[in-house]
Amino acid sequence: MSTTAKISLQGVAKRFGKKVVLDGIDLDVRPAESLVIIGGSGTGKSVTLKCVLGLLRPDAGRIMVDGDDVVAMSGSNHERVMRKFGMLFQGAALFDSLPVWHNVAFGLINGRGLARAEARAVAVTKLGQVGLGPEVADLRPAELSGGMLKRVALARAIAADPEIIFFDEPTTGLDPIMADVINNLIVDCVRRLGATALSITHDIASVRKIADRVAMIYQGKIIWCGAVADLDHSGNPYVDQFIHGRAEGPIQMQVLKP
């Protein structure tokens, strides 16, 4: 494995008004590894992902993708880097007005100029790779169950064979069995493509399944990063509290007592 980082965040900071969300994030993701960021709600996991994707502009710091600083990029240069990415959104974010196959093939048709017939064939193949038959291709997103929506979103994320795939809470809202199915599909797809994966989740079962390394974010900083095998003996009380889901510990939730 190359030691050069595929994605490197250096001192990334982001605030919304007076609320500091990211307070100098430093994190490297190596080529072809699967790194999962864990952390409580509102700790900046999604903001980190959106900064890497260019959907949010950090207030400070650098984000390097294959050695290029994407924060400073705009226009066609940024679009060129974006073509390396695939993204599975938490709520799937499928386009309601388009059939399933067109959702999967959207980036191929509009981003890469593929002919519709050719793009449809690719879409049907990708749907097959996530366990969905060709009969699903002409359905609308509103006709699909939650698990099917996630699978279609996964097919869309891998449709253009991206070098880097982002997964935003891939198993949220699914039953445990379907969550495991999605986890298996993620592992299969990432391995088949040889892609680099950056995921964010609260789901510790998902972390154990899809991660090579894990980073925990708390109060806008990475407070622990290590191999998934070390997660249970990290020696970090914040990580211990989080992975065991305990209310008692150094992470204090603000709740109103009755």
């Binding site: 959106k50 994707l53 260019g54 959907l55 679009e79 974006m82 073509r83 990415f85 695939g86 993204m87 959104f89 974010a93 499928l94 386009f95 309601d96 959207f106 980036g107 509009n110 981003g111 890469r112 869309r156």
Partner: peptide, 9 residues
């Protein structure tokens, strides 16, 4: 969905 558009170039 608008963010998804951007990630799809």
């Amino acid at each position: 969905q608008i963010d998804a558009l951007m990630t799809l170039s």
